[in-house]
Amino acid sequence: MSNWTDIAALDDIAIRGARVVKTAHGCVAVFRTGTDEVFALDNACPHKKGPLAEGIVHGNTVTCPLHNWVFSLETGEAQGADNGRVETYAARIENGRILLETSFLKARAA
């Protein structure tokens, strides 16, 4: 069952920026791209746990701030030569608000 939760106003996140949602199971980074799409990914780089929310957002990708791995915001896959993937979660914009699909919180708690 899907469970859309209002987490913030779109304008709480800068264009080409990100903010963190804290959960009991770790942080989720919520990104806003240059074309006003939103994406949610685990905030830990598979390389050495770099906080992706602090990276530079370009196109629909983000560059990890620690060692510059680049990840697709859509699939969570590392781009180019690097190998790895971060978990992604569904997020969308409605009426200027950001909604996050939060059933993963229950799934993980169970």
């Binding site: 987490i7 913030a8 709480d12 996140i13 800068a14 903010r19 963190v20 949602v21 804290k22 959960t23 009991a24 199971h25 942080c27 919520v30 939060t102 919180l105 229950k106 993980r108 708690a109």
Partner: peptide
């Protein structure tokens, strides 16, 4: 405020 999490889900909410 941009330095803080945009939302925090308490443990209860997650369960």
């Amino acid at each position: 405020k941009t330095y803080a999490p945009v939302t925090t889900f308490a443990l209860e909410a997650a369960e």
